[in-house]
Lab assay of single mutants.
Amino acid sequence: DNLVIALHSYEPSHDGDLGFEKGEQLRILEQSGEWWKAQSLTTGQEGFIPFNFVAKA
């Protein structure tokens, strides 16, 4: 599955970004460039995340 774990917390800075906490698990929905579309397994919310803040779970 496309699961990743957050290496750092991220505060959203643009509409459509997904904020998350360090250690949170996310499911990657789309990989494109440096911003990936993801869904939080904690909150169920979707949005874009910086790819370098996460690692394969």
Results as ranks from 00 to 15, higher is better:
1 D>Q: 10
1 D>I: 11
3 L>V: 12
3 L>D: 04
3 L>N: 04
4 V>Q: 04
4 V>Y: 15
4 V>M: 12
5 I>E: 05
5 I>P: 00
6 A>T: 07
6 A>F: 04
7 L>N: 04
7 L>M: 08
10 Y>T: 02
10 Y>E: 00
11 E>Y: 14
12 P>Q: 06
12 P>N: 04
13 S>E: 14
13 S>Y: 12
14 H>E: 08
14 H>F: 10
14 H>C: 15
14 H>R: 15
16 G>C: 13
16 G>S: 08
17 D>K: 09
17 D>I: 08
18 L>Y: 04
18 L>M: 08
18 L>P: 01
18 L>C: 05
18 L>N: 01
19 G>F: 07
19 G>A: 11
19 G>N: 04
19 G>S: 08
20 F>Y: 03
20 F>I: 07
20 F>D: 00
20 F>T: 01
21 E>S: 13
21 E>Q: 14
21 E>K: 14
21 E>G: 08
22 K>P: 04
22 K>S: 06
22 K>L: 07
22 K>A: 10
23 G>Y: 06
23 G>Q: 02
24 E>S: 04
24 E>W: 05
24 E>T: 05
25 Q>L: 15
26 L>P: 00
27 R>A: 06
27 R>G: 00
28 I>Y: 01
28 I>Q: 00
29 L>Y: 05
30 E>M: 08
31 Q>T: 11
31 Q>W: 13
31 Q>N: 10
32 S>F: 13
32 S>C: 15
33 G>Y: 03
33 G>R: 04
33 G>W: 04
34 E>H: 14
35 W>S: 07
35 W>Q: 07
35 W>M: 12
35 W>C: 12
36 W>P: 02
38 A>Y: 03
38 A>N: 00
38 A>L: 07
39 Q>F: 09
39 Q>R: 12
40 S>G: 01
41 L>C: 12
41 L>H: 02
41 L>E: 04
42 T>K: 15
42 T>P: 03
43 T>Y: 02
43 T>F: 02
44 G>Y: 07
44 G>P: 01
44 G>M: 09
44 G>E: 04
44 G>H: 07
45 Q>N: 10
45 Q>Y: 09
46 E>L: 12
46 E>K: 11
46 E>H: 08
46 E>M: 14
47 G>F: 06
48 F>A: 05
48 F>W: 15
49 I>G: 01
50 P>L: 07
51 F>Y: 13
51 F>A: 15
51 F>R: 15
52 N>M: 10
53 F>G: 03
54 V>R: 00
54 V>S: 01
54 V>M: 04
55 A>M: 13
56 K>S: 12
56 K>C: 12
56 K>M: 13
56 K>E: 10
57 A>Q: 11
57 A>W: 14
